[in-house]
Design a protein around this nucleic acid. Structure first.
Lengths: 232, 232
DNA sequence: CGAGGTCTTGAGAACTCTCAAATCGTGTGG
DNA sequence: CCACACGATTTGAGAGTTCTCAAGACCTCG
């Protein structure tokens, strides 16, 4: 798919789901008066599933850039049709999304524009399975307006902040769609969270798959208890 | 419990969950620099469950006012320990929360202060199982600051908008903690959504919820490519 | 090399916030 | 029962961040 191509209501039969293989997808909401809002981006490896993504009356799921999807299955997200491991995986994905969504509300409700951008960049890097280290290069396929609509800003503000980050030496933007982290520490210091990793990449919370640092997929499904989680 | 009382990390054993019986609870996040954020409120009948509510490193679950909780059980939210109906219910709750959270992101990211307040009030009324009709009286137990921290505003702004709503005859506030809807139509017209009920009160989407009347499911299929749809 | 779109930059406006003070309401103690 | 004290709410004035509108620069693609 190319930028702007849609997966229309993306559930032919109400049950299909996909993963992103390459590129990125965005979930776009358009208000009657034209305001635009992007509810989330999905990167390679992440699941697209109507039941776990929905909640809007009007939306489209669009490709951010050249993107490939892989149809995982036509699966009723219901206990009746899942085996235990599948059910736990679905449920864990759901919980991770609740966590992410809650964090995003905090970002939109309480962070300044620069803080939102910094949080966004760190999130992109971590979800790309990269380290927060100087020199890492990462994909940033969405344009300024997409980022703005995701962060509750406008594109000019996003642009100004990117410019500032470039001038301060935090970030380099060698070509569109691509970015290099130049000063990881400075970027981390821009955001008002302490436990960044745990905050942005919530650990699985269902069925005990505790070791995985991969927020989106808890491929483990043992049934032992991780005990109390979170910072105390 | 009285206002401010906490359910500390509310999962002694990591597995308990409750419902609110009376009053209201709020999920409070405090940033290191003192900024306050309320991720959600829970009203009577709604479920409190760490796995389905979490995602923050630091939070407290506090009573908004005099509140009673009822412990539903000590239940592992995992396929292994649930029967089919329970699992579907948990999963459906999770999906509803994803939906709500997505909507809340839109509210915080793209709505003006008066729109946020109007959306909030309508949400409170609908979740109290009341109709959007002139004259309905409803509980509004949270104070201005709580509302502000939930909506990404500050308490003075909330207060100003409430005052305006009172003067315009949309709302009456006979006593703290209680409100009367005077002009339902006017309140509805303040918000930029069309299908208010479906937007604010998402229908169940697990286990047969699919065929329902809202336009959420079951249209055409799969991936379409209407050329490029991103550019206007 | 030209066209179209994206990104950048600037100037002014708008909305919301901050700080401050007055008012209101409730609970307490005399 | 009344006075007082404390917290919550309201209101005002000014400041600040972000938005809007606009124009120019840049880049990619044909």
């Amino acid at each position: 798919m190319r930028r702007g191509d849609c997966v229309d209501r993306w559930n032919a039969d109400g049950e299909s789901y996909w993963t992103v293989t390459e590129g990125a997808m965005m979930f776009l909401v358009l208000l009657p008066d034209g305001r635009r809002h992007i509810a989330f981006f999905r990167f390679p490896g992440e699941l697209l599933c109507p039941q776990l993504d929905g909640g809007f009356v009007d939306y489209t799921l669009q490709a951010v850039c050249d993107t490939k999807l892989c149809r995982v299955g036509s699966l009723s997200v219901s206990q009746a049709s899942l085996n235990g491991a599948q059910a736990d995986h679905i449920l864990d994905t759901a919980c991770t999304r609740i966590a992410r969504a809650g964090l995003h509300s905090l970002v939109l409700g309480r962070l300044t524009a620069p803080e939102r951008i910094a949080t966004f960049l760190i999130d992109v890097i971590l979800r790309s399975r990269l380290q927060m280290e100087d020199g890492v290069e990462f994909l940033l396929p969405m344009n300024r307006e997409d980022i703005a609509d995701y962060l509750g800003l406008n594109s000019e503000t996003v642009s100004r902040i990117f410019t500032r980050l470039r001038k301060v030496g935090v970030l380099a933007l060698p070509r569109p769609g691509r970015a290099i982290l130049r000063d990881a520490r400075a970027l981390l210091e821009m955001i008002p969270f302490e436990a960044v990793e745990q905050t942005l990449m919530p650990a699985p919370r269902i069925g005990g798959g505790q070791g995985s640092s991969n927020g989106e997929f808890g491929e483990e499904n043992g049934i032992d208890r991780p005990g109390r989680r979170g910072a105390h």
